[in-house]
Write a protein that binds this DNA or RNA. Sequence first.
DNA 1: CTGTATCCGGATCGATACTG
DNA 2: CAGTATCGATCCGGATACAG
Lengths: 253, 253
Amino acid sequence: MMDKRKLNADHSQPIRGADVKSYGGFCPVAKAAEVVAERWTPLIIRELLTGSHRFHEFERGLPGVPHSLLVQRLRSLERAGVIERRVVKDARRPEYHLTAAGQELSGIVASLGEWGQRWMHQTIGPKDVDPKLLMWDMHRRINLDRLPDRRIVIQFDFRGLKQQSFWLVLERPEPSVCFQDPGFEVDLWVTADTVALHNVWMGRRSFADALDEGRIEVDGPSDLARSFPSWLALNTFAHVPPANRALADSKLS
Amino acid sequence: MMDKRKLNADHSQPIRGADVKSYGGFCPVAKAAEVVAERWTPLIIRELLTGSHRFHEFERGLPGVPHSLLVQRLRSLERAGVIERRVVKDARRPEYHLTAAGQELSGIVASLGEWGQRWMHQTIGPKDVDPKLLMWDMHRRINLDRLPDRRIVIQFDFRGLKQQSFWLVLERPEPSVCFQDPGFEVDLWVTADTVALHNVWMGRRSFADALDEGRIEVDGPSDLARSFPSWLALNTFAHVPPANRALADSKLS
DNA sequence: CTGTATCCGGATCGATACTG
DNA sequence: CAGTATCGATCCGGATACAG
């Protein structure tokens, strides 16, 4: 069946529906905020920037987003000219891609993340963890070139999480993550304290320290186990150190 | 009377209440978006960056924000460690200032504005205008050093707006704007088509063209009238040209 | 002036169930 | 898989009244 939405050959003006709640006025910050600063929108753009293009990928990367709200947001962003919905021929599922306008939001989203890592996220506590989301982020940030030239399967077990295992399937062209046993032979087993692995992933603790303290354990062939830490590219913002609030405030006085 | 909120000597962690609706998880973009991407928040930060520090100034710069919602947002931002509420001695009114964390949002807000001006704001139509807001923005962006060394009062009349005049009182240390006749002797009278003046202010039309077309008229002593355009620093984002959407899209294909 | 405290209609959000 | 439909709960916008 054909897609009924029109193809909008005229792009001389942004495509705006009446769905966005306007601030009124002429301020460009307000105009941008109407589109970009709505709930969930910055995270949808983050997902697009990190490689998600399909509806179910957004749902994986945005745990808790209501199904129907995600549809709304995608339509909204499409009308605002930030994303483009492509119905690829011979593929049943549509793909979403950033337009040129959308790609120019990458700096803003990156700055948001840096600011968040610097000021709002000085350490990661039990309330901040989310193993599924961690696994999803990990599969997007793997140094594939550090891996042997074959498929490597890693099983993750989080301590305290009852019965829940995850599998990282590292292969070309793209790693994937499974929440059920994919049936492949497992090359490495990682057992970790949930909070500790999050802190390592976010650059707040070193992998080596977590190993020494026994918070992370890697089992399997020793050559693989030794190189495993180098496979992890860590979170995009792991390199951003926390701000020293005490210092910052004293500078102000 | 003393302010009951505690002074929070310990700033090792951000001060967080339970008011912000959390996205959950550990993503720094999400943590930042919880604080910064709530409705009205980017505009409150814009106001702080452009020189507003008092409650009534925020209300002027944020037309339409509900009185009580503004209070909520200010508390929210204070708890998040983005702004600081100062009760200055011998002043009845508190002042709001950006903390070090808040100041580091300036780049994000600036980028938002540039993006908005570039993509969402290619021309300004009748729905985008707001004379009060325009006057408020103007009084914040005056090249005082181009002015004679005395108080200059300008009366603005927008064509089509019934009976509504505005006055710009240009004096040191700070210009001010009046929505009622301040009673000063007027030095210059500006009569303008509302949309045209907005377009000039946003860098979308030149002042000279608007004069030539008769959309803006300046009456008063000719030396003042001649130098008047140079007093206007224009909107912060007036220098940002619109993107060429047709070109951008063709590059993508 | 800077709040606090209401109230109310409507929009938005979050959760769930249903469809092709 | 990618949506629609629906339904409470919450939030927002706008108004008003009032206190320090």
